[in-house]
């Protein structure tokens, strides 16, 4: 899911860079003090997740974990993803520095969209939160595949060609990440609703009694 250097044209790179700056700023403003360690841990998970190869796809595919970050952190996932992608570009030579903005937007925006769309379900707790976790985890990967294809629209591959290839390759990743996010978010909504940043009134009743915030 990392687009390499030299594939995209300058206007696409600039638009991506601008959008990434704006998103990071918005994310940093919403990053709460109590969220810092959760954010760093999830950012590390994202950083390492790209090394876990999924052998089921027709081509080389790795875990993304962007849905997990988005569902737990919300807007704060943006700077986390930026930092992790920057380190992947520097240390692993995945993607590159000029495409960092585009790659960050492609990965972060679908994740945050999923969270915004599913926040109500998360608040409901219980099974609905777990289902929201699955949808968020799988949906963020699908969204990122579509965003990556959209970025490739103006190359000789075109949107449809790239989308077909990338989405098909990421079906196993969608399933895996849907399950991972389902269990993570389901457990958090039950035991530590405060980690999800939904506010005190949001947690399930039992959780509020057990752990007042």
């Amino acid at each position: 899911m990392h687009i390499s250097e030299g594939v995209l044209s300058a206007p696409v790179l600039l638009a991506g860079g601008g959008a990434a700056l704006a998103g990071t700023w918005a994310g940093l403003r919403r990053l709460d003090h109590d969220q810092l360690i959760t954010a760093a841990t999830l950012s590390s998970a994202f950083f390492v997740g790209s090394l876990v190869h999924v052998p089921l796809g027709p081509s080389s595919v790795h875990l993304l974990l962007n849905g997990l970050l988005g569902m737990i952190l919300g807007w704060a996932a943006f700077p986390c993803i930026l930092v992790a992608l920057l380190l992947q570009a520097l240390l692993f030579q995945f993607g590159g520095l000029t495409v960092l903005g585009v790659n960050t937007v492609n990965v972060a925006v679908p994740a945050i969209l999923c969270r915004l769309l599913l926040a109500g379900q998360l608040r409901a707790g219980g099974r609905r939160a777990a289902v929201a976790g699955f949808l968020g985890g799988a949906g963020a990967v699908l969204g990122t595949a579509l965003m990556a294809a959209l970025s490739l629209t103006f190359t000789d591959e075109g949107f449809l060609g790239a989308a077909r290839l990338i989405v098909a390759a990421h079906v196993p990743v969608m399933l895996i990440e849907g399950l991972v996010t389902m269990f993570a978010v389901g457990a958090l909504a039950r035991m530590y609703p405060s980690v999800l940043g939904l506010g005190c009134a949001a947690g399930a009743d039992a959780a509020r009694e057990a752990r007042p915030c």
């Binding site: 990392h2 998970a45 390492v48 790209s50 876990v52 190869h53 052998p55 692993f92």
Partner: peptide, 17 residues
Amino acid sequence: LLAALLVLACAPDASAH
């Protein structure tokens, strides 16, 4: 989460892209 990270980091078939 940290434990999970360590497991991921040490996965023998960890590979790159």
